[in-house]
Amino acid sequence: MPDVFELGEKVYQSRLIVETGKYKNFEETKKAIEVSGAEIVTVAVRRVNITDPHKENLLDYLSPKKYTILPNTAGCYTADDAVRTCRLAREAGVGKMIKLEVIGDDKTLFPDVPATLEAAKILVKEGFIVLPYITDDPITAQKLQDIGCAAVMPLAAPIGSGLGIRNPYNIRIILEQATVPVIVDAGVGTASDAAIAMELGCHGVLMNTAIAGAQDPILMAEAMRLGVEAGRKAFLAGRIGKKLYATASSPLEGVLA
């Protein structure tokens, strides 16, 4: 049976979700996303520059026919703002799946958990497919799952920090009790971080800076694709247990006397 990733109302081949910020230009964004193999891409909702309306539009480069466009609520600091942003995004006609993030603090960009829960309740009731960005807190994950979110997305480390999976044990607890996909969102720095997330059993990984901020974003996009695939396969294969002492790999019988 092929290993596919079910999220919301669709089935995907790729378990890597990429965001579209911080690239040099739309051309680079497009190329990196193609190479990453991602089928879901996040976008932000912002005011049109009315003094320069002819600027190119991101969707001219990332066709909603080819990709699932996942609007985010980046920059929202209250539940109200996040809900308003989601309603606007839905009106744009790219579907009803959204990445909910309600930021609690400028310096850490950690989520405001109570506000995230509040917004999630409203959005689920309004028929959105809600993917919330949260801290790696199993209780919050449980609550959001109970509300009806379609996934939970714990951070591995602060957004853009590249610190990797800071608390794999919490991620494991979240995974153990999850009845919805668990997607590591934020903190991945390099391909091994993505692989570790997948080896833990996460269903997907979401990232932006690790690719867009690399010296060679296109090459890193490929590395991330391979990292996610390697980690997923290793998880499915079932790794060996860790032991303190050696176990010989060659037969012990027939050794020359």
Partner: peptide, 10 residues
């Protein structure tokens, strides 16, 4: 009036 669109973002 607010006129919005999608931009690159994470």
């Amino acid at each position: 009036l607010e006129i919005i669109h999608f931009v690159g973002g994470g």
